[in-house]
């Protein structure tokens, strides 16, 4: 079971308190109607599957309740860092 550093609680907490939220930094466009079909398809469905460094979202659902972002190595499963939602990608 992973230990995940919650950037809001500012402590390491057990994985069972968290839920993974998929790839991070995919912002919903302010005006989706301006998106072409291919652009919208990209937004909806196209995701990375990197070997190594991966930006992903987590929610401390059974803790402070907040969504935040993380950089995790998909090979070692190690978290490089976690940071609050809205902060630039690291």
């Amino acid at each position: 079971m992973l230990l995940i550093h919650c950037p809001y609680c500012e402590e390491d907490r057990p994985e069972v308190e968290f839920a993974n939220g998929g790839q991070a930094h995919i912002a919903r466009p302010a005006d989706p109607s301006a998106y072409s079909d291919p652009q919208w398809e990209e937004f909806l469905y196209i995701r990375r599957n990197p070997r190594g460094r991966h930006h992903e979202r987590w929610r401390h659902v059974h803790g402070c309740g907040r969504f935040f972002n993380a950089v995790r190595d998909t090979v070692s499963d190690r978290f490089e860092t976690t940071y609050k939602a809205g902060e630039p990608a690291r």
Binding site: M1, C9, R13, P14, V16, E17, H62, G63, C64, G65
Partner: peptide, 16 residues
């Protein structure tokens, strides 16, 4: 799963 033994008196948190 938390290390409850190390909670200071007065600590309260959501968990499972």
């Amino acid at each position: 799963p938390l290390d409850v033994a190390k909670f200071p008196i007065g600590r309260g948190t959501r968990t499972v």
